[in-house]
Design a protein around this nucleic acid. Sequence first.
DNA 1: ACATTAAGTGATT
DNA 2: AATCACTTAATGT
Length: 218
Amino acid sequence: MSTEKELIREKLVSNYNSIFEKKLIDEIVEVGSLQSLKNGEILIDIDDEMTHIPLLINGVVKIMRADESGDDIVLYYLEKGDTCAISFVNCINRSKSMFKGIVKKDMEGIFIPVCLIDDWLKKYESWRHFIIDSYHLRLMEMVESIDRLAFLKLEERVYKYLNDKVAIEKDNTLIITHQEIADDINTSRVVVSRLLKRLENEGKIAIRRNKIILEDLL
DNA sequence: ACATTAAGTGATT
DNA sequence: AATCACTTAATGT
């Protein structure tokens, strides 16, 4: 047996022994290839063809999606013991990657050709569980990302709301309560209070009782 | 001084 | 982000 295969087996056993059954580990050792990528290298880019699936041994990969303005939206991070379950969909229907994966910490992973992924789902219970768990985890992390984005949007909405109000009143000191704002933008008072606190810390507004003073206008 | 209402906080889901 | 359960601060009577 070659040195590389021994190395792969060793790394698999120390990181995935509790998850994968023995026969599956044997098979991964047969077909997997060990690769390492350095910080900043691109693991996968949008529209790339998926040819291999990585099982992370160590390091960190940031998975993201580019938005309209060219900013990147971070979806989730991959660490040791993780895999990019979303890419399995790409494997099965042979589509291209929707995401970009960039190495954030020198990474080492065992790469598995995509053609085997589907077979293993039928063949190995441990593989099936691994994929489903991973998929679930990824989904949860994405939901968190969505929450964060929604939160940012809400802060913007509040600020815009205040500016609109100032334009109408023709006075940069608004007589308004947090509750009223909350009612107008359909959220809770607590949330508004916290958002306003943030805006205040950013120096955009000053908060008094029943009053909000807009420092500089939008 | 006391009651009422607005705003702030921490924990939980 | 929303809700709950409290606390704290400001105001009116």
